[in-house]
Write a protein that binds this DNA or RNA. Structure first.
Length: 360
DNA sequence: AATCCGGGGAC
DNA sequence: GTCCCAGGATT
């Protein structure tokens, strides 16, 4: 049996029962693929079910506000995926009357649909003979052929694409693509792969060399830089209700279109007086009497390329400042309605700022 | 080609 | 602590 048929046979016996595997609806396939970008199945599964329930088809998704889509995406990370998905839904409704583009080339034009996702949707939903190339495929092929090329380099991707194009089963590209990814996710894992029970053991060059753990070869990772975040949790009573200031992150960059607090960002650590004398504190407080009721411990938040060392300054005011632009005053009871990054969510929960009714 | 963009789970 | 996940966009 050749490699392709071996993978497919293994898949039929070992595949997980996942909701997007029991549909041919390109919308559902697309939703699952975008959610699973750089995301493990177990982490994305709940979000997939949530999205399908709230937005059963592309028309529901397109009709929603971007903020609602972000709110439903909250906690999943890489929020540009949510914004792009929403944008793509608009395009599909407006340009294609709600019908998904049926080819790799057309799918590739949509926001948030790159080479991997276009290949996955076109092959799984439409049977186009297009190999997927994700982290799993790279690892499996890298080990099978003991590839010396760095799999995440341009040359490595070209090499992998060539190999995958040879291996893919032209009679059933959908099953082949899912099979090789599932094989990488469950058996040919990054650590402690199941070589002893592997049906491709005799074909695997890395195994015969006893060098399975040396593959895949990858580029050196960029160092994670540290940044110091000082958040101002400015509270005051307005119309009998406790309010705080939120910041709508409209500029490009991290957490765009989500909400956090007024922020002072610094490449180095700052003393407390420096935090209060610099913007945005100096502008918000503007000679008003205030009380620092608490300064939090450090919250360490790790991103893919940043380590955010964060402190929250809880500042009590007697009334709302004259000018709070560009911030907005929000009743504490309403915080749960806004899409917020995990760092802010962690603080709110720890400080019990939330009230009954606050949910993820 | 390099960098930015999240969060979590396995070890 | 380290690694990496059904990657994509930007520069």
């Amino acid at each position: 049996m050749n490699i392709s048929q071996t993978l497919i046979s293994w898949y039929q016996l070992n595949k997980r029962d996942l909701p997007w595997r029991s549909t041919h609806d390109p919308y559902c396939i697309c939703l699952s693929e975008v959610i699973l970008q750089q995301t493990r199945v177990n982490q994305g599964l709940e979000y997939y079910n949530r999205f399908v329930e709230r937005f059963p088809d592309v028309f529901f998704l397109a009709a929603a506000t971007e903020e609602e889509v972000l709110k439903l995406w909250q906690g999943l990370g890489y929020y540009s995926r949510a914004r792009n998905l929403h944008h793509a839904a608009h395009m599909i409704v407006q340009k294609f009357n709600g019908v998904f583009p049926p080819t790799y080339a057309e799918l590739l034009k949509l926001n948030g649909i790159g080479e991997y996702t276009a290949a996955a949707i076109s092959s799984i939903a439409y049977g186009e003979v297009k190999p997927v190339l994700d982290g799993n495929v790279a690892r499996v092929l890298s080990r099978l052929y003991a590839l010396q090329e760095q799999v995440d380099s341009a040359a490595g991707k070209k090499l992998l694409n060539g190999i995958a194009s040879q291996l893919i089963d032209p009679a059933d590209p959908a099953t082949f693509n899912q099979a090789i990814m599932e094989f990488g996710a469950l058996l040919c894992t990054p650590r402690n792969p199941g070589c002893e029970t592997c049906p491709l053991q005799s074909s695997c060059l890395a195994f015969s060399l006893k060098r399975v753990n040396d593959y895949p070869v990858k580029l050196a990772r960029t160092v994670v830089k540290e940044r110091y975040f000082y958040y101002l949790v400015v509270t005051f009573v307005k119309q009998g209700e406790l309010h705080l200031l939120l910041n709508h992150r409209n500029s490009i960059g991290i957490w765009r279109k989500m909400y956090d607090f007024p922020l002072l960002e610094s490449p180095g650590e700052l003393e407390y007086p420096a935090v209060l004398s610099a913007q945005p504190a100096s502008i918000i407080l503007n000679d008003m009497p205030f009380e620092i009721s608490a300064i939090s411990d450090e919250y360490i938040h790790i991103l893919s390329h940043r380590k955010l060392i964060t402190r929250f300054f809880k500042i009590k005011l007697q009334r709302q400042p004259e000018s709070i632009q560009p911030y907005i005053a929000v009743p504490v009871s309403q915080i749960g309605k806004y899409p917020i990054p995990r760092l802010i969510d962690r603080y709110i929960r720890a400080e019990k700022l939330l009230v009954p009714g606050y949910t993820l």
